[in-house]
């Protein structure tokens, strides 16, 4: 059986990166938390798209699942080719780059896909919110407020976000 293993790979969990190890086998992706020992298994058959994303000094793996959920792992060092080849060979998936917007704008377009809200600036994603993190959503005049479940492991946690949605004049 072919496999790939990476240490110090963090998984995004409610806005916090939890450190752990990632193992890829012929048909499953397994992430084990360093802190709690908790194991997360992802069946490769359930992956809809796989992307890699560049961050400062490392890159991340983004798995969008057929059920609409999202898994994200970061901390990879220059292994994107090795990882891409593995995905192609065993999972029959092309791992393409999903570029992030670096423009620094606060205006863009909101897209919904599965459980994900994506805020895009000029067709590039600026950030994504897994909607399972939303504890409450309220609307006002031209306004939507999202409140989030808190994660005490995060040094800094996002608790609320407000959007302004202009009235579209017909």
């Amino acid at each position: 059986m072919d496999f790939l293993e990476f240490s110090s790979i963090s998984a995004e969990q409610r806005g916090c990166m939890a450190s752990g190890r990632l193992k890829l086998t012929n048909d499953t992706i397994i992430w084990k938390s360093d802190k709690t020992g908790k194991v997360e298994e992802i069946s490769a058959d359930n992956i809809e798209t796989a992307n890699y994303q560049r961050f400062v000094g490392h890159f991340g793996l983004r798995l969008f699942m057929k059920n609409g959920s999202l898994h994200r792992f970061t901390g990879f060092k220059e292994d994107e080719k090795k990882l891409a080849e593995f995905f192609k060979k065993h999972y029959k998936l092309e791992m393409l780059e999903k570029e992030l917007s670096m423009r620094g704008w606060n205006w863009g377009t909101v897209h919904f896909n599965g459980d994900i809200l994506s805020f895009d600036i000029n067709d590039k994603c600026a950030f994504e919110i897994p909607l399972t993190n939303v504890s409450q959503c309220t609307t006002g005049k031209n306004e939507v407020t999202l409140e989030f479940h808190q994660n005490d492991d995060a040094p800094v946690s996002l608790i609320e976000m407000r959007y302004h949605i202009p009235t579209t004049e017909a």
Partner: peptide
């Protein structure tokens, strides 16, 4: 604002 129809992020709040 090249696109007035865009959605704007209006406010974010962080807690620590």
């Amino acid at each position: 604002y090249s696109s007035p129809d865009a959605t704007f992020l209006k406010e974010v709040t962080y807690r620590s």
